[in-house]
Design a protein around this nucleic acid. Structure first.
Lengths: 106, 106
DNA sequence: ATTTTGCGCAACCAAAAAGTTGCATATATA
DNA sequence: TATATATGCAACTTTTTGGTTGCGCAAAAT
């Protein structure tokens, strides 16, 4: 059972859940109301998100509030960093080319 | 058949392929040499990456060179942006709290 | 011209994932 | 106390995915 952040965000429903609980804690039922799927399937997605340590649970009476562990999202950001470097370099190279052309035009 | 960038990067082999061809174009055979899986399975991953428009193919005789379309990676970056805003805001809030504590300490 | 090489594609298979159904458990409420 | 509500969990089904095998085709090498 692969269980990492990349796997977690691969599913569109999970990305939508992430977006929902990014700013406020919500219960499974409330989350499920936003989708046209069953509570149980949302529950399953929440379990996966929990296993990936992407969400935090807080029991309050018989309700469980789920919220996003935003720090975990930084893992994706960190992975992306290497590619960000590449596209920035390419952009700079393009800039150099453009400025060279400019100079030659004078 | 869902086919988006998030689905593409969900598989560790595909992430490794992306890393491999990020800086230089490679043929399927060369890519496959870096893994202990068959050429065909790599070929299949390349097809998925192509369908997601994450890679670019360039035929050269009977060889096909694959390279990363780095711009596509920016889609992930764009998606991440909304969460980056959140964690930066939270950091600033923490900063405010800390500076308030500092002031009170004086 | 024949053989080898690089590749994609389709068919198949096993494993995993997504969703459903049914239940158990704990907390509220009447 | 009996009932309703919120939830997790396990079993089952269907769909998707990753991988293999076996082709066919075109380009290179012999």
């Amino acid at each position: 059972m692969r269980r990492d952040v990349f796997q977690a965000i691969a599913d569109p429903t999970r990305r939508a859940i992430i977006a929902l609980i990014a700013l406020q804690s919500l219960t499974p039922n409330t989350i499920a109301e936003n989708f046209n799927t069953s509570r149980q399937s949302i529950s399953k997605h929440l379990r996966i998100l929990t296993e990936c340590e992407l969400v935090h649970q807080e029991q309050q009476g018989r309700e469980i509030y789920y919220s996003l562990k935003i720090e975990k999202m930084k893992e994706i950001d960190a992975w992306l960093e290497q590619y960000r470097k590449i596209w920035e370099t390419r952009f700079n190279q393009l800039e150099n080319v453009l400025s060279t052309i400019k100079k030659q035009a004078k």
